[in-house]
Structures are given as C-alpha cells and as structure tokens.
Design a protein around this nucleic acid. Structure first.
Lengths: 340, 340
DNA sequence: TTGAAAGCGCTAACAC
DNA sequence: GTGTTAGCGCTTTCAA
C-alpha cells in the first residue's frame, strides 16, 4: 500500500505542495481556511511526512547511533536508559547496535551509521577498552569521528583526541580497596576482567596502589583475571578456594563476577561476608536484590548515559566541548563485606 | 564538514554519476580501468553513499523499529538480542524505543517510526498487554499496521487481526503449578503482576485451573498481584508471611518478583526451598546465578525475538503469514522448589 | 498568502 | 560501457 505524500494532500486540497509544507512546519502564515482544509486532509489520511526526504535537505536525521558490546549485561541498558532520557529533550531517537564483542561488527555498524547519516555516535565497549588496539581499528574510528560527532564512553583510543565521557575507575577501585582495608583485610584477591583491556588494568593498578599505600604485599597468585561473566567469577573463586592459602576478601572487576564469586563461595560452605568479603563494581540494579546484597562501586550508569548525550549535543551544536568528562564513582556499602 | 557525494566522485573521476552508482551497486558492467579509478576515489574519501537518498527511491530503510516497555528488565534485552541475531541475515538494524510504560510514548514512537519509514515494527509490552485497552489506542496501532508490517510480541489487541508471536503463558504457568503440586504442595500463593494486564490474568487463570484440576481449593487471600518489580515481590511476600496461615509454595508472575520473594523469605528466617518453594517465570540469565538458583519457566526470550523477526520478514516480503505463532515455554527445575 | 521551481543524493530507465 | 535525465518526497527561495 503506497504511502501518501504531500502531493496527494496538495492535490486534494487544491493548493501547492509548498502550502502543505507550510502548515506542516508552521514556517509561514497560511490563511485559516486553507489551513483548516489541509489539516482535515492530513487527519483523514493520517499523513506523516517522510522523514528521509526531509533529512535529505536538512542534513539531520534525529537519530543517534549507539554501539554497545553486550546488552545482556545490565550495566548497558542502564546507560542506554540514561541516554534516552536525556535525548527526550532534543527529540533524538536511537539506532542501537549490539556487537557481542566483535570488532568486525563494530566496523560494520560504524559504516551503517555513517550511511544512515546519524546525527551522532556513542561508542561503548569493544575496541575502545583495548590496552593495545590495532592502528587500523583506531584510525577507522577517528575517520568516522571526523565526519560525525562521536563520543567514547568509558574507554579511550591511544594517540587520539576523541571526546570521552568516563567514570573514574581508578578512584572507584581505590574506594573499594580502602573500604576492605579499613575493615581489617590485608589478604585480598582480585577476580575477573581480561588483562588486555584497560578497564582491567586500570583497576589492577588501583588494586596494587591501595595495597602498596598500606605496605601490604601484593600476592600475585591471588590476581585472577579471566573475563567479565558470572561464570568467570565462579571459576576464579573456585581457583582461589583451592589454594593452600586464601584471601579473606576479594575485589571483583564487576558485579557479574562478584555474584559468581559469592555463589561459589557459598557452595563451598563459606559464609559471605563472615568468612570472606566480596566487593563488586558497577552497581547493577540486581546488586541490591542479591543475597547477600552486594557491596559495590556505583558507576552511575544512568548519569553516564545522560552525560554522553549532553556532550554529543554540544558537539552537534558546534559548541566547544571538553575532551574529557569524568564522573566520580561512589562506594555503596551493603552486605557482602564485613570486618575481619 | 560537508559529506561528499556521488557527484564529487563522478567529477573527480571524470565520469557520470550513473557510472559511480554502477560500481557502488554492481548493477551493470563497468570497464575495469574506470572502475579502478572510481574505487580509488571512494577509498580516498572514505565515501559512503547516503542511505536516505537511496531509501527515498527504494522505499526501504533497512531499519526495524522495536518498542519495549523497559530495557532494564533483562527479559527484553534477551528478546532484542534474538531479534538482532536473526536480523543479521537480512542486514536490518534497529531503532530501539523504550517507553517506560507510557502509552503516550508508545504513540510518539509509533509516529516517529512511521515518519522514518521503518521496514517493520516489533511491539512488546505496554498497551498490548492490557485486558481492556482503550479503542483509540487499539485503533492507532491498527492504522500503523496497515501501513507498515507490525508484529505484536507476547501481547494482543482485542478485535484486531494483528500478527502475533507469543509464548504460551497459560501452559507455562500450568507447568509451574503442576511441578509444585507434584512436589506435594497444596497451599500455594500467587505473587506479582498487575491485574489489568493480560499476562497476569492468563497466568492467574492457569493458576486457578491447576488447583481446580486437583480439587485443591483456591485461597483468594493468597493471590497478591501488585507489579512486576523485585520490590513488588518483596512486599507481597512480606504480606503473605504476615498472615496467620501461610502457603508452602508461591508461584510468581516473573523472575524479578520471585527474586524479591526469595529475598524477603530469607530475611524472615525461612529457608528456600526447605520452608517454602518459589517458582518464577521468564528464566532471565540471572535466574541460575541467584542463591538458591531459581526454578522457573523459560519463555525462550531469545527465540521469541528471532521468531518476531522471521515473521516480520515474511510480512515484508508479502509472503503469507500465520496470524499467530506460539512458542512452547519450558519448565526449568533448579533449586528454589522442593518436596513438601 | 500562495505557487513555481530548484535542489537534497541517489537510482534506473533510456539512449548512444 | 557510459551518459542524460527523470524522479523519490520534501523544503525553501523567489515571484507574484
């Protein structure tokens, strides 16, 4: 069924398309009677102007592209929700692309966004978290950023000047570690994350720093990166528990691994937090519904999303934009940590 | 910075735009030397053809609009992921719209999708779950469906012939209830959901039916709809526990409420499943990471998403489409239920 | 207050 | 093999 156009309306109203366009956009005065006639027709046919034809002229699509690594991790929907709230204001809507960690897909989606002429791009996860990203992958992003406003969320690309919005994960981890240390823990392990990713290495740096500050020796064998999943948390915790000497507290790379770690600890007959303290990172919604409720570091995911859009909007309006916006993470003490 | 066009390429290559278009689309043979020249230019400028101009002709945008009520409930990202996987094949990408339960937003997004001429619409949640949806809201959806292929996921709109993909929630609940009854439970409560929504009433119908089939009287005071959140599960469970007589098992409207119910039960000193059995519905990823692991009914969220796209694709290709596709839910027995 | 016409970037006849 | 040209549906001068 053919969609009706401004011509159909114009014809039936016996006016020119220009006039119809005028009542559609309120861009110039139209005699009340003609306006009424046209509006009636619009109503009658439920006419909606073709946004593409419009965008072709205006060079604006009203679409923001979002690249996320895995929507199944609740952290990302939170960020997205924040972005959506903020975008209400400017009437933007979202092309959401899930890469499932594939760099090839990131490229593919980047190209699609470029073709569709999205007004801006939010890039989270994937290659921008690599400690050592291949130059071509970096270059690709830079080239897109030259054409379309683009903001990196919680990531970075070396030797580039890309605009970024991040939570200060270093400080966040410090917060978590100091909390543990204040509770009397000195035997602390680290679980999860992938060592080739910056999130992980930043957190590990803070982990070591916190220990060193207190003159506590770092036990390398208790540092067990692996991945970001619940299962990873379970496996690494099991590894820890199979050792002769075990830590009394564990700092996890995110809430998923923390939930896994708790589960395995409990299965091994330990009580959390009495026998072992566990902290997560992110503060996903379920963190305070889990048993025991998770002590964690809030990334303010929602705020992160909002901020990304705010920054993007500045860029779209050609306003000057800070290259780096950092949000302060917050320690959220709940039930999974206790005094030694 | 002006985006470059097919004209720029044509000019510099000293050929017509038609030729450039031909190499872009491989739609007709082009002499190897000219082709090479053009391709070099495309490479040089990283030229990407404007998809809108293209769509204006082709009447296809390659975009599928998805309306979801709340991306923060992990069930929906799962559905979305399934849809995305399936859409790979046809190269579709997604305009994702989160309504946060607002019918006004649904209308708004529906209009935006219409304006943007998306190739198809997937509608989940919101008004399509209402037992009694206002005629205007129904009509609106029907009108959009007349112009754009549209599929309803896990919902329905009375007196319409809209295409639907659903999981059989009635059978699913029957499965859960029979499981409880086989374990010897006869004192069973129901928690969560909103009574004006079909999901809830379908499940309640099955709940009653299962009891009746076994000649077990229904205790109306143990039926506590409220909402779909974890907190709702907590509150309703507390209500149940505050009663003089308490059920030995609880059937929850979804996994969120089940997780809440477990939490409150545990806080009240009960052991799950020893003192009280609890079943959820949905089988969100966290269901088997929670302690105790949740016995629940799998909706096959991923498959649901895939199926929605498959059906949508049929509609887009004007193939004949079944009006109703039902997926069979599956009982997943884990640790939150036990013999009485 | 209204209309004619050019043009946004691309594709697809139709010629040559 | 390649170029010319007419749209796709809309906005926006410029005239009237």
């Amino acid at each position: 069924m053919r969609q009706i156009t401004i011509y159909d309306i114009a014809k039936e109203a016996k006016v020119s398309v220009a006039t119809v366009s005028r009542v559609l956009n309120g861009t110039a005065p139209v005699k009340a009677s003609t306006r009424a006639k046209i509006e009636a027709l619009i109503q009658k046919y439920q006419f909606q102007p073709n946004a593409m034809a419009r965008s072709l002229l205006s060079k604006e699509t009203g679409i923001i592209g979002v690249i996320v690594p895995d929507l199944t991790n609740p952290f990302f929907p939170e960020v997205f929700a924040g972005a959506e709230q903020e975008a209400q204001e400017s009437g933007h809507t979202f092309l959401l692309c899930n890469t499932m960690g594939s760099y090839a897909k990131e490229s593919e989606y980047l190209n699609i966004m470029q073709e569709k002429r999205v007004d801006g791009i939010v890039f989270i996860g994937g290659r921008i978290n690599l400690k050592d990203c291949e130059p071509e992958l970096v270059q690709e992003v830079v080239e897109h950023a030259n054409k379309i406003p683009l903001v990196l969320v919680n990531g970075n690309l070396k030797n580039t000047e890309l605009t970024r919005v991040v939570t200060d994960e270093y400080t966040g981890t410090l917060l978590a570690m100091r909390h543990l240390i204040e509770l009397g823990h000195t035997q602390i392990g680290f679980i999860g994350g992938e060592s080739h990713m910056t999130t992980t290495s930043i957190k590990l740096r803070a982990f070591r720093k916190a220990l060193r500050d207190e003159g506590i020796p770092v036990r390398e064998e208790w540092i067990l990166p692996d991945s970001f999943s619940v299962d990873s948390g379970r496996q690494m915790m099991q590894k820890l528990l199979d050792m002769k000497e075990q830590p009394t507290a564990v700092c996890c790379v995110n809430d998923f691994t923390a939930i896994g770690a708790i589960k395995t600890a409990v299965e091994n007959g330990l009580k959390v937090p009495d026998d072992i303290s566990i902290v997560g990172f992110d503060d996903i919604p379920l963190a305070h519904h889990v048993i025991p409720e998770l002590t964690t570091v809030s990334q303010q995911a929602n705020e992160l999303g909002r901020m990304a859009i705010k920054v993007l909007r500045q860029m779209m309006n050609k306003g000057k934009t800070k290259k780096l916006t950092a949000l302060e993470p917050q320690l959220v003490v709940r039930q999974s940590t206790a005094r030694l």
